[in-house]
């Protein structure tokens, strides 16, 4: 029986803001996740998932189809409501804040400044009916940028950073290849310099050669910007390339977690062993 079904005991002194120099070692985490649960009717989406994510750390979530990866990501990004569990996020100037207690306005502010969310299908993450520049500029405008020329300059810079031709600034994303759309979606998310980015299979659905270049780009950006990221993938090679740590899920639960190389080179759980070996067979 998972913790999800049971009453979770709340600490007597339920502080909304956890002490920074608390009991969890040096440096408080950027994101602290405890006992996340989500069911869809009788079906388990995600069960009792806990982990800490530190600033600049990349965590890969792997597992077979239906193991709950996307569900977990959506819970983390507060796009789905939790059945049980708690999430704390390090808000600049406020310390670790219980996300449940954040006002809707604060939550949205966080989502469009300090967080990013890269959808698997770039069409879900882009506005297809406005130009590349407007797509990149949207977040800037949402947080109050009101100088057209500056917004445009920033958007252009970002196209360059994601290795797109800045001359395509005024084109609609509908005319872009899948790989370009994905780059644009990444630029649109990173323009406000978020500290944490969620990505759901960011390279799936792309040609292998395009995938490889995009992965290189992602790795560079993550390193240069010191981004923390949670990347969902069923591709262990993606995890190997991008992630410091890995979290292996099965039927909604975490069956193994650890440093990426350790887990992939020396898997402890039989399920992870199976995953790793099936990859090796490909």
């Amino acid at each position: 029986m998972s913790a999800c079904g049971r009453e979770r005991a709340e600490p007597a002194n339920d502080l909304h803001v956890l002490p920074l120099a608390g009991g969890w070692g040096a440096g408080a985490p950027l994101l602290r996740v405890e006992g996340l649960c989500k069911n869809y009717g009788d079906r388990v989406g995600c069960a009792d998932v806990s982990f800490d994510l530190h600033a600049g750390e990349v965590l890969a979530v792997v597992g077979e189809s239906g193991s709950g990866k996307s569900t977990l990501l959506q819970l983390l990004a507060t796009r789905l409501a939790l059945d049980a569990g708690r999430m704390h996020y390090q808000i600049t100037g406020r310390g670790l804040v219980d996300l449940k207690l954040l006002s809707e306005a604060d939550r949205r502010w966080l989502m469009r400044t300090d967080w990013g969310y890269v959808e698997q299908n770039p069409r879900d993450g882009l506005r297809m009916n406005v130009s590349a520049g407007a797509n990149v500029g949207e977040r800037l405008m949402a947080v109050g940028a009101r100088h057209y020329g500056e917004i445009r300059r920033t958007a252009k810079d970002w196209l360059q950073r994601v290795e797109m031709d800045p001359a395509r600034l005024d084109e609609l994303p509908t005319g872009f290849s899948g790989g370009m759309q994905q780059r644009l979606q990444i630029a649109r998310n990173l323009v406000t310099r978020p500290r944490l980015v969620f990505m759901d299979e960011p390279t799936a659905g792309l040609d292998v050669s395009v995938q490889a270049r995009l992965l290189d780009l992602l790795r560079e950006l993550v390193t240069d910007l010191g981004l923390a990221a949670v990347i969902v993938t069923h591709d262990l090679a993606v995890a190997r390339l991008l992630a410091h740590r890995i979290l292996v899920m099965r039927e909604g639960r975490v069956v193994e977690t650890g440093l990426t190389d350790q887990v992939l080179d020396d898997p402890q759980h039989p399920y992870t062993q199976l995953l790793v070996s099936s990859v090796l067979q490909v």
């Binding site: 406005v130 130009s131 405008m141 005024d170």
Partner: peptide
């Protein structure tokens, strides 16, 4: 949350 409206105006100027 009216950033969207400025996206429209941005797009006007771009076009």
């Amino acid at each position: 949350d009216y950033g969207l409206m400025h996206v429209k105006l941005y797009e006007d100027i771009a076009r």
